[in-house]
Design a protein around this nucleic acid. Structure first.
Length: 891
RNA sequence: GCCGGAGUGGCGAAAUGGCAGACGCGCCGGAUUCAAAAUCCGGUAGGGGUAAUUCCCUGUGUGGGUUCGAGUCCCACCUCCGGUACCA
């Protein structure tokens, strides 16, 4: 017993915390400052915990336990991101309902996490798969569905910041008179086109193997992120969320967040805002310049939508319009059919077919070899009336900009490569601004840098930046161009075809023939949640037809009070949905009337510290911010951003320095570590390995090291040869001496500051040094030991509770005051400082701590070692920094 | 290709521009033990020197620079890791 017996100690204190509800937290405590510390909640896989989980979780636990001891009211919850494919795959193979498997996995995760002694308030536990939870996920979807984005709305939010652009109720959408005139259905269709959640038919990433479509974010090199299965493009009607409406705010409001710069950068990149112009090229019918068309445009102005007989392009370089020698449409571009001449039709059709079959992987994999086909058609360049050939090529993407480009091979690398390959002329219209450069050979490489316009008629000599503006302005006046902003970010493809996700709370109206009319009705709020239907088997349909369409008639259909026959939406939401708002629900997880109580929202939010893996840098974190901003605009939350500070823990590699994986056989199971050395040792080791944010390899011998340290702390206090838990004979009630006092206070200071910087590895080092110091002392005052136990407690809570108890306290130490240090006790009367001669260390002197430069110099000059090195040299200069060092510059 | 981050003992790593390698692992030696485990104490960057020492030289990826002084700041390059890739 008196040996350090982590098994009995850890289970005893875990039981104690549970019995006493030690970490249950009260909401809205007015007199205590709140702290909301959040872990990225895990997907409860069948594998159980891996060592990466406890890394971030231990870090947040230390922060929380420390903060409680500093008197903060701490919200520290845990839950499960439990929808997803694996449970459904399991169901398909074993015939067991995904819910059952999911609950089993959650049980394992919960047991394993409890085994590690984290101070979560388990009363707030949530699972995204719980109907009481996804009821509100569906509810939030309906809020998004009920919202349109008013770009010009100026307003000041509850945060006191003025913004332009706001998500507003769809009922406030101005409806043009000509639409209203067409009646109710027309108005509803008009509204549907403006909602933040909308149905659209578009090419999507369909994965046959997984039986679902995937978001762009889930497709990597033409394969599914999960499983690496091939993905093809299909035209399907899918739900999308208009995240692009928030592109600017998602980019701009990153500014003030306490996030790693790299993550902010990645998000900005992902959003990929660019500015330029949209320009219309008239399709050439014959050889006559489109004079009439131009006159008409000058009178009518630039149409909102691309008009018949024109090709609209997006360019960031309107200054290069005079260098356009051809145009390219994406193979899927709707104009291709019209523009293609009969001679070319065969080739064009053939090209379109192969392009459609190509996955994105094939499109990028062919070492960037450009392909394309001339359509036979031409268009008029609006700046100079030149006739340019129109091609199709798959290097132009239908999903970006207008799906069509003006090609300027002289000043764009991709166009240059294409033009070279197909023998299309290359024209220079920009030259470097500096004269010194040798002549540019535009035929051999594109000049993409900014410069000065040439061969551009009236614009010659104008610098690029200015020229972009000037040409756009001139063309705008003639109704053939306008300024435009584009995003790399696409609207978020939000539907999936799988069973184990949130059903959509949407009904489709059917006509008398049972065909959808295209009009929709939301599920009434009071009848949420929309539950999962019973299905007989979990085999994918093998087609893009969703799993939920296998449901029984009474789930699929109903007749509304006005007699309209309705069919349920059978798509389901992606896994991201539940994780978009879970941090809100933790504040009020048992509320059955609201998704969150506004008072609790104001008290707890934003999350003060959010720790998780960098793999969520763009997806989860961008989606969650987007939802949050919609809720903010709708007045449902009061802070514009959900996560004030973000920290990414570095990945833990296997002992061989490679990524841990089953196939590499280097996976470390945390449960085994706990069985062998205890939870405290595991926690301590994970924090001792190195800086939290750094990637670092696992070393089992390192666990041994911290385990030994815990044993040393134990024996510092407990007599391990006694039969009973009793204090070691060296523990006294005497007051510590000055030197001991100083060591204690130095340690308190260092550990406190390190914890605040999340520099846990150095904090642990400090405690080790202090422990080593105490071993050198013949007696150990209780006053030296109790603070150590408190300092250690956030890191290794079980052993600390046990020692605290052995020192005679009968309450948990979780709410004991964190030790304070006294600066006045830190000062030493003398200090040892280095002496350098010409920057080289030549001796050490001991001087009074407050010695000034002159005293230090005198002491240094008196040092025999220093004298030896100054011999025969002339001292030119002496640098003496009080308390730091002395340096003689000599020749 | 582009954008980040990082290169320090045998290993994980420390170091507001001021004694490089704290702390831990491993290894070596000692104590304890019949012996071992466990534990406790000491040593441990490399090279050289000395009877011995608080001796000397070299050293933070490479090459330059700034500075009295650089692992730390600046420039160029090399390597590794991560992100991203036809976004017009």
């Amino acid at each position: 017993m008196p040996r350090y017996d982590f098994r009995s100690i850890e289970s005893r204190w875990q039981q104690y915390w549970e019995d006493n509800q030690t970490f249950q937290v009260q909401d809205c405590v007015a007199d205590r400052e709140k702290l909301y510390v959040l872990d990225m909640f895990p997907y409860p896989s069948g594998e159980g915990l891996h060592v990466g989980h406890p890394e971030g979780y231990t870090a947040t636990d230390i922060v929380c336990r420390h903060a409680r001891m500093r008197g903060r009211n701490v919200l520290h919850p845990m839950g499960w991101d439990a929808f997803g494919l694996p449970a459904e795959e399991f169901a398909r193979q074993k015939g067991i309902h995904p819910r059952i498997k999911t609950e089993e996995n959650i049980e394992t995760f919960r047991r394993q996490l409890k085994m590690l002694g984290f101070s979560y308030d388990w009363n707030r536990e949530i699972s995204t798969t719980d109907p009481d939870y996804y009821r509100w996920t569906q509810w939030i979807f309906l809020q998004i569905y009920d919202t349109w984005y008013d770009e010009s709305h100026e307003w000041t939010g509850p945060d006191g910041v003025s913004r332009t652009g706001r998500g507003r109720p769809i009922s406030e959408l101005p409806v043009p008179a000509e639409v209203s005139a067409k009646g109710d259905s027309a108005v509803r269709r008009y509204q549907d086109k403006h909602r933040l959640a909308y149905l659209s038919e578009a090419p999507v990433n369909w994965c046959q193997e997984l039986g679902t479509v995937l978001a762009n974010e889930e497709v990597i090199d033409g394969r599914s992120e999960r499983g690496g299965h091939p993905v093809e493009r299909l035209n399907l009607k899918q739900w999308k969320l208009r995240i692009t409406a928030y592109g600017d705010r998602l980019g701009d409001e990153l500014q003030d967040l306490g996030w790693p710069e790299s993550i902010k950068y990645m998000q900005r990149n992902w959003i990929g805002r660019s500015t330029g112009a949209e320009v219309d090229f008239a399709v050439a019918g014959g050889d006559d310049s489109p004079t009439e068309w131009l006159q008409q445009r000058t009178a009518d102005g630039f149409p909102d939508e691309q008009a018949a007989g024109t090709i609209r392009v997006y360019t960031t370089r309107p200054d290069t319009l005079f260098g356009v020698t051809y145009m390219v449409l994406a193979p899927e571009h709707p104009l291709v059919d019209q523009i293609t001449t009969d001679e070319q039709r065969g080739q064009v059709e053939e090209y379109r077919r192969t392009a459609a079959l190509k996955s994105d992987l094939d499109r990028t994999d062919l070492s960037h070899q450009k392909t394309g086909v001339f359509t036979g058609g031409y268009a008029w360049n609006p700046v100079n009336g030149e006739k340019v050939p129109v091609w199709i090529a798959d290097y132009v993407l239908i999903s970006y900009g207008t799906g069509a480009i003006m090609a300027v091979p002289g000043h764009d690398e991709r166009d240059h490569e294409f033009a070279t390959q197909f023998g299309i002329p290359i024209v220079q219209v920009v030259q470097p601004a500096t004269e010194t450069a040798e002549p540019v050979d535009i035929q051999s490489a594109a000049l993409t840098e900014l410069g000065v316009a040439v061969n551009s008629g009236e614009w010659d000599g104008m610098p690029t930046a200015e020229c972009k503006q000037a040409i756009t302005a001139a063309l705008s006046e003639r109704g053939v161009a306008r300024q435009a902003v584009n995003y790399r970010l696409r609207d978020w493809l939000f539907s999936r075809q799988r069973y184990w996700g949130e059903p959509f709370p949407i009904w489709h109206e059917l006509d008398d023939n049972g065909e959808p009319t295209g009009l929709m009705r939301p599920e009434p709020i009071e009848s949420l949640p929309v539950p999962h239907p019973h299905v007989e088997d979990f085999k994918p349909t093998g087609t893009p037809e969703p799993m939920l369409s296998k449901a029984s008639e009474d789930w699929l259909y109903r007749t509304d009070s006005d007699g309209v026959r309705l069919k349920r939406e059978t798509n389901s939401m992606p896994q991201w949905a539940g994780s978009c708002w879970y941090y809100l629900r933790f504040c009020d997880s048992r509320n059955s009337n609201q998704f969150i109580d506004p008072e609790k929202e104001r008290y707890w939010l934003p999350v003060d510290l959010y720790i998780g893996g960098a793999e969520h840098a763009v997806l989860h974190l961008l989606y969650a911010r987007f939802w949050h901003k919609v809720l903010f605009d709708r007045g449902l939350v009061t802070h514009p951003e959900p996560f004030r500070r973000l920290v990414n823990q570095g990945m833990i590699l296997g002992e061989n320095g490679e990524k841990m994986s089953k196939s590499r056989g280097n996976v470390v199971n945390p449960e085994e570590v706990v069985e062998q050395r205890g939870a405290d040792a595991l926690r301590l080791y994970e924090m001792f390995m190195g800086p939290l944010e750094q990637v670092k390899p696992w070393q089992t011998s390192g666990v041994e090291g911290v385990y030994r340290f815990l044993g040393r702390v134990w024996r510092l206090i407990i007599d391990d040869r006694a039969e009973q838990n009793q204090l070691d004979a060296a523990v006294t009630e005497d007051a510590p001496d000055e030197n001991q006092q100083r060591m204690l206070h130095k340690t308190i200071k260092a550990v406190s500051e390190d914890v605040e910087r999340l520099s846990f590895n150095t904090a642990i080092s400090r405690m080790m040094e202090y422990t080593n110091f105490l071993y050198e002392q013949s007696t150990r005052s209780r006053q030296l030991l109790e603070p150590l136990v408190l300092l250690l407690s956030p890191f290794a809570p079980h052993i600390s509770e046990e020692l605290w108890n052995a020192l005679g306290h009968d309450q948990t130490l979780a709410y004991e005051a964190w030790p304070a240090w006294d600066e006045s006790l830190l000062v030493e009367s003398t200090v040892e400082i280095p002496v350098q001669v010409c920057g080289k260390l030549r001796g050490r002197i001991t001087v009074a701590a407050d010695a000034d430069s002159a005293q230090m110099q005198a002491a240094a000059e008196a040092d025999p070692g220093v004298q030896k090195h100054l011999e025969g040299k002339t001292v030119i200069k002496v640098i003496a920094v009080p308390g730091k060092m002395v340096n003689f510059v000599a020749r």
